Amino acid sequence: MLITSLLPLLTHYSLGFDLVAGPDETVTLTILPRKVAGATHNPQAAEARPISITANAAEIDAELERGADGALGQLIASRKTLADQIAQQREADEAAKTAAAQAATAKSTAIKPSAPTTPIKAPAPTSPPADATPAEPASLW
């Protein structure tokens, strides 16, 4: 029943397991979602958080037998929905970036320069009058 319960997660992730015996015959089952080898989807930190269940072995078995109605099944469904929402948001972001780039390209080709393309020449500097001396500034009159 464990594998059947985890099939929804296996569509998006590679899974690792850790089983640890605790006090009073409790067991902690930790499921570690990882990126599937060769997949283009990189899981976000929230998607890749480990899932831990601590209870006695019979309780864990009973919870896993509940399948989609159990706590693990509901958590898997929530994570699957979250992963789907993230994928949809990424697609929407890429579409928006593409649309913005196309709009910017269209806008830059539509703008025509209104000023003349030849530069305006500055007046040539004039030399000081012939009677100017370094001690006295040249007169404007």
Results as ranks from 00 to 15, higher is better:
T117A: 14
S5T: 06
I86S: 05
L15M: 08
K112Y: 06
P8I: 03
A138I: 02
K97Y: 05
L6D: 08
T54W: 01
T117F: 10
T105K: 13
L19K: 01
S5L: 03
A62Y: 00
A130C: 05
A135W: 02
I53L: 15
I76Q: 00
I3C: 03
N56K: 11
P129V: 02
P8Q: 08
Q85W: 03
T98V: 13
A83R: 07
A77S: 14
A83V: 06
K107F: 11
T28R: 14
A110Q: 13
A101V: 04
T40E: 09
S78T: 07
P116V: 05
Q89P: 02
A48K: 08
S52V: 01
L64H: 02
I31R: 07
A106W: 04
R49N: 08
A101C: 04
A115K: 09
A57P: 00
T126W: 00
D61S: 06
L64V: 08
D131T: 11
T117L: 15
T81I: 03
Q74N: 10
L72F: 10
R34Y: 02
K35I: 01
I86T: 12
D84L: 10
I31L: 15
K97Q: 14
K80C: 08
S78W: 03
T98C: 01
Q102S: 09
K121S: 11
A45Y: 09
A92G: 07
H41F: 07
A103I: 01
